[in-house]
């Protein structure tokens, strides 16, 4: 044995074995291929899809149902509603999460109660509720709180401490009501997601940052949140995609400028059901595809320093550094 190990040995011939057969794999591929072919065949040959109704023209002198004016308006509304309510959700949710984790008992209980309420009430009910909130107030304004009561206390009947006010029906109806219902509800879910993210970051991180003299806000903004993002982004992608679809609930506020409402409207008017459904499916697929691509890039950004994509970026940076000519000394360890 020892004799053999000291002498140089020739490299043996590469192994040429007969591979294991996987007949079931082939069968399943064949089945999938047939099913796929059937599906394509269905799409192309079944007249009930009425592709021209969807893409070309649904009525004399009108574009296809996907691209007709009101539907595009509705699409714009859906996108706008998704963006604004998610912005409210993410912003307020982050504030709530920070409050929830605060050592201040009052702040954390407020955040808890908020989350409790808005997670308990169904979005559909919230949408209707917000659409009707204006029965509580005739006007909504900014100014001194309890101004009427204070006025009465001093014997002034029509004391007014409002700087600015607006009729409630104008503010709290339609789009704004829908946006608030969805956004405030979303904030409750986002609060939990952000909290999980913040808690996933090692306490040693904020300790090291604080020891360097960073303020609590700087620690949150520069150290903890960026690391929490890795945990926050994937479920937020879920939430955003769910939100695209939940925007259709604002029809109950009621808000008309929304994708599904508009499509449904045309369907009701022209008595065409199936192609309209297909058009809706296609639009939602397109929106979600775009969102998923966005999520991929955001995840990649916050994955810096972790895993494979980090190494790829690292190579790029090294090249930059070399070209910058800043580094003169070689490998040190």
């Amino acid at each position: 044995m020892s004799e053999q190990s000291t002498t140089e040995r020739a490299r043996p011939e590469a192994i040429k074995a007969v591979p294991v057969r996987h007949p079931l794999r082939w069968v399943s591929i064949a089945v999938i291929a047939v099913l796929f072919a059937m599906f394509v065949h269905l799409l192309l040959t079944n007249d009930n899809f009425r592709w021209s109704y969807i893409f070309v023209s649904y009525e004399e002198g009108k574009r296809g149902v996907m691209f007709t004016g009101p539907v595009l308006e509705g699409l714009r509304g859906t996108l706008l509603l998704t963006v604004t309510s998610m912005a409210i959700g993410i912003g307020l949710g982050t504030v709530l999460a920070v409050m929830r984790l605060s050592p201040n008992r009052i702040l954390s209980s407020v955040a808890f109660v908020y989350t409790w309420f808005f997670r308990a009430v169904p979005r559909l009910i919230l949408a209707i509720l917000f659409g009707n909130l204006n029965i509580l107030w005739s006007r909504i304004g900014f100014g001194l709180p309890f101004d009427e009561q204070i006025g009465k206390l001093f014997g002034i009947d029509d004391f007014n401490g409002q700087f600015y006010s607006i009729r409630a029906v104008d503010l709290l109806a339609g789009f704004v009501a829908g946006m608030l219902a969805l956004g405030l509800s979303e904030a409750a879910y986002m609060a939990e997601i952000v909290r999980a993210g913040l808690q996933s970051v090692d306490t040693g991180q904020s300790e090291a940052a604080v020891a360097l003299g960073m303020s609590r806000f700087q620690v949150l903004r520069r150290i903890v949140l960026p690391q929490a993002m890795r945990v926050i982004v994937p479920p937020t992608g879920n939430e955003t995609i769910a939100m695209v679809k939940d925007t259709s609930l604002v029809a109950f506020v009621p808000v008309a400028g929304e994708l599904w409402f508009q499509l449904n409207n045309i369907s009701a008017r022209t008595f065409v059901v199936f192609p309209v459904l297909v058009a809706a499916v296609i639009w939602y697929l397109i929106i979600c595809t775009v969102l998923m691509i966005g999520q991929y890039f955001i995840e990649r950004h916050y994955g810096r320093g972790y895993g494979a994509s980090a190494r790829a970026k690292q190579r790029l940076r090294n090249i930059e550094v070399e070209q910058g000519g800043k580094i003169t000394t070689g490998e040190a360890s």
Partner: peptide
């Protein structure tokens, strides 16, 4: 450079 790491400037701590 003083702590002998000038070649690691662009690396992430995990590396």
């Amino acid at each position: 450079e003083r702590v002998g790491l000038s070649s690691k400037i662009g690396n992430y701590p995990g590396q």
